[in-house]
Design a protein around this nucleic acid. Structure first.
Length: 266
DNA sequence: ATGGTCGTCCCACGA
């Protein structure tokens, strides 16, 4: 069972790359982020032709998440609890009826949070929104873990976990992805008992999932590791492999993120 | 030393 996450930075702009990648990689489940379209204009047909069921939680111009699955998708939820005024489409979870058992998957697009400070030196609404979103995610995941269903929480977390996950950590210390407050909430989430798939399976320094379009970041390997697969104990017990598919960053009209793919005995 | 990106949807804004 291959379960992947990929921030595509617009599904409609990325269709050529996405279709090529689906054909060559043949994942069973894909968590997409930044589809940047409403549900009605998601390019369903071409993806369904490749054998996928599709659930989307879209938004005009910004954000938007989706789950693709070769197996039936059940019990879809698109609201992260804790803020009734939150209009941003950043979360979708579902139960997948896999060949061996049921498991849960969530596609997560955690807020970027920059800029951190306003002109008066206090936290911006954007950074407060990020921190609050992380609190809400932790509270919700705590509830999800109660039913002991294998759970795979995959997405663009906009969090650089440690110094080894960025090309030059000193230049990132003030960034919303690397601040101490962000790291505090990240550890708090993991301390629920989640396993970071990359840390369990690989753990090498310099393994990145995002390279900015600007300043020749890809050519200079100025990357950061911000796309993650977090696992409940029941899912972590079944992981066999974890791959960052960095080759696609070299393709035609690439996303600035590359897929992260976990293989599971599920 | 400096400028250098992309997507959305037409204008800046978000990343």
């Amino acid at each position: 069972m291959k379960i992947a996450t990929w921030n595509v930075n617009s599904i409609n702009a990325r269709m050529h790359a996405v279709i090529e990648w689906l054909k060559t990689t043949n994942p069973d489940v894909v968590c997409l982020q930044e589809i940047k379209t409403i549900d009605e204009t998601f390019p369903r047909l071409e993806i369904e032709t490749l054998g996928y069921n599709i659930e989307t939680h879209g938004q005009k111009s910004y954000n938007g998440v989706a789950i693709l699955s070769k197996y039936p998708i059940e019990e879809v939820k698109t609201k992260l609890p804790g803020d009734d005024n939150d209009e941003q489409s950043r979360y979708i979870e579902a139960i997948i009826a896999g060949p061996k058992k049921l498991f849960r998957v969530a596609s997560i697009y955690l807020p970027n949070g920059n800029p951190v400070f306003d002109e008066n030196g206090i936290f911006t609404k954007k950074y407060e929104y990020k921190l609050n979103w992380m609190r809400r995610l932790k509270d919700h995941v705590a509830i999800l873990l109660n039913d002991e269903l294998p759970t795979v929480l995959a997405g663009d977390y906009n969090v650089i976990p440690g110094n080894k996950d960025v090309y030059d950590y000193k230049s990132w210390i003030g960034d919303a992805a690397f601040r101490k407050e962000t790291h505090f909430h990240w550890r708090s989430l993991l301390n629920l008992g989640l396993t970071e798939a990359f840390e369990q399976m690989d753990n090498r320094p310099g393994q990145y999932t995002f390279w900015d379009y600007q300043r020749g970041a890809w050519q200079n390997n100025h990357g950061i590791r911000i796309d993650h697969i977090l696992l409940s104990a029941q899912a972590a017990d079944t992981i066999i492999d974890l791959v960052i598919d960095k080759n696609v960053r070299d393709g035609i009209k690439p996303s600035d993120h590359v897929p992260v793919i976990g293989t599971f005995d599920l």
